[in-house]
């Protein structure tokens, strides 16, 4: 067992983990942060995406010990300080970018990483960036639209309801 300590959503999180404990397991089982989901075991679905030191990573494909000392941000830390939805979360609700909600935390975390890197992505850039995030419900139309809207672009020309 190894002792790990990291900053998760601005708070200190520490615990004892096995070598094989994944960061996703540490967050879910030790820290009770169950917003981070696990949807596959081959590092493809992206439901587990969190930010480690500001970069999007798949927390099911990283050992907890590798995040020792790191700053980790999860879906639970994304809302505004007053508890209201942040710009990306609000755009997902406004544009119906989620249905069952299971892939949603990873989608929001990936979207946030994308917009940091590319503040005004094109539709093709958004789609390409989401290669590591699988959604089975929405057919992606409204996710792509939500992310473009969150970037401040006018999405009224994109077909909707």
């Amino acid at each position: 067992m190894a002792q790990v300590k990291m900053t998760v959503n601005g708070k200190t999180a520490s615990g004892e983990v096995e070598g094989r404990t994944l960061l996703a397991q540490f967050l879910r089982d030790d820290q009770g942060l169950t917003g981070t989901h696990v949807g596959c075991d081959t590092s493809q679905c992206g439901a587990c995406v969190v930010h480690v030191n500001g970069e999007a990573v798949k927390s099911c494909t990283m050992l907890a010990v590798e995040a020792n000392g790191a700053t980790v941000d999860t879906i639970e830390g994304q809302a505004n300080a007053d508890g209201s939805l942040n710009v990306i979360q609000q755009a997902f609700q406004d544009h119906h970018g989620l249905q069952c909600g299971f892939c949603t935390p990873g989608m929001v975390m990936s979207a946030s990483a994308l917009l940091k890197e590319n503040p005004k992505p094109t539709e093709a850039e958004v789609r390409h960036y989401l290669d590591g995030n699988i959604c089975r419900c929405t057919g992606y139309h409204n996710i792509v639209k939500a992310i473009m809207a969150a970037s401040g672009q006018d999405v009224s020309a994109i077909a909707a309801e």
Binding site: G35, E76, A79, F92, L98, G101, T104
Partner: peptide, 9 residues
């Protein structure tokens, strides 16, 4: 959506 978007599902 609010609970799903904030990790509170």
């Amino acid at each position: 959506d609010v609970r799903f978007l904030t990790g509170n599902g």
